[in-house]
C-alpha cells in the first residue's frame, strides 16, 4: 500500500529462528521457526501481550542471546558466527539499546552518562563531549545536561538513555518496553523521539512493547502472539513526529 520514496534496505533478518528455555524439567518453546526482516530508516514496532516472546526475539536479533536453531543476519554479519568478544565489538560499533529501566549511573550527570560509552569507541575527550552535547540537544535536554539521575524525571531519564544510545551513531537501535515505566505523555514523547531518529538518521529502530498506544506512532507494526508473527502492516499515514522537524 505504502510505496516508500526510497528503496528499502533490509538490515536485520531472522531465518527460522527457534529458542527454548529449560528450567528444571520444564521446557518452554518461546520461538519456533520464526522469520522476519526489518528495514532501515523506519520505526518497527513488535507488539503483543506479555510473555509472548518479544524480549526474547529482541535479544536474539541484537546478539544478546543466541539461537537454538536458524540464523540471524545483522547488517553484514551472521551473529551466530561471532564469539563473545566479536559480538561485543559488533555491538560497540553498530548497536544502541534503550531498556525499560533507565540504568543510569547515579554518580554521573547527563552529559557524562552519554560520554562514557564513547570513550570506549576510541573517541577523543573533545569529540566525545561534542557528540554527547549534540545528542542531548537532539532529545531536548540541552538545558539539563549537568543534572544527575536523581534530579531528572522518568521521561528525562529515558531521554538521557536514548541520547546515550544515539551518541554512538548506531545503525541499529533496539528498544525494549521503553515507555512502560512512564506516564502516557512522557511515553509519547519517547516513541516520537525514536521515530524521528529512524527518519532523520536512517537508523533501523526496532521497538518491542505490549503497550497498544504506541501502535499509531510506528511506521510498521508486527503483531506477535505465542512466539509467532500474526500480522505485518505498515501504518500508511504515519503521523508527523511531535518534536520539531529538522530544517
Amino acid at each position: 500500500m505504502n510505496a516508500s520514496a526510497h528503496p528499502s534496505v533490509v538490515t536485520l533478518r531472522a531465518e527460522n529462528v527457534a529458542k527454548a528455555f529449560v528450567s528444571g524439567r520444564l521446557r518452554t518453546q518461546v520461538l519456533d521457526g520464526l522469520s522476519l526482516s526489518i528495514e532501515a530508516g523506519e520505526l518497527t514496532l513488535i507488539s503483543g501481550p506479555s510473555g509472548c516472546g518479544k524480549s526474547t526475539l529482541l535479544a536474539i536479533l541484537s546478539g544478546l542471546q543466541n539461537v537454538d536453531a536458524g540464523r540471524v543476519l545483522a547488517l553484514d554479519s551472521e551473529l551466530g558466527q561471532l564469539d563473545r568478544g566479536q559480538l561485543e565489538g559488533f555491538r560497540l560499533r553498530h548497536t544502541g539499546f534503550v531498556f525499560q529501566g533507565f540504568n543510569l549511573f547515579p554518580a554521573l550527570n547527563a552529559r557524562e552518562q552519554v560520554e562514557l560509552p564513547l570513550h570506549y569507541l576510541g573517541l577523543s575527550r573533545e569529540r566525545a563531549r561534542a557528540r554527547a552535547v549534540h545528542s542531548l540537544e537532539e532529545v531536548g535536554l540541552a538545558r539539563r545536561m549537568g543534572l544527575k539521575p536523581a534530579e531528572l524525571s522518568g521521561g528525562e531519564k529515558q531521554r538521557v538513555a536514548i541520547a546515550r544510545a544515539l551518541a554512538k551513531r548506531p545503525q541499529l537501535l533496539f528498544a525494549d518496553e521503553p515507555t512502560s515505566a512512564l506516564d502516557a505523555a512522557s511515553g509519547q514523547t519517547i516513541i516520537d523521539i525514536l521515530h524521528r531518529i529512524a527518519r532523520t538518521h536512517g537508523t533501523t529502530v526496532l521497538c518491542v512493547s505490549h503497550d497498544p498506544r504506541l501502535i499509531g506512532h510506528a511506521d510498521r507494526v508486527l503483531a506477535m502472539e505465542d512466539g509467532r508473527i500474526l500480522s505485518d502492516r505498515r501504518v500508511s499515514a504515519s503521523p508527523a513526529p511531535h518534536l520539531g522537524t529538522p530544517s
Binding site: 561485543e88 565489538g89 555491538r91 548497536t95 543510569l104 560509552p117 570506549y120 544510545a165 554512538k168
Partner: peptide, 18 residues
C-alpha cells in the same frame, strides 16, 4: 548495586575487560 548499569554498558559494547 550498579550491576544493571554495567550490563547496559556491556550491551552498548563496552567489553567485560573494561
Amino acid at each position: 548495586g550498579s550491576v544493571r548499569e554495567y550490563a547496559t554498558l556491556n550491551a552498548l559494547g563496552v567489553g567485560v575487560g573494561a
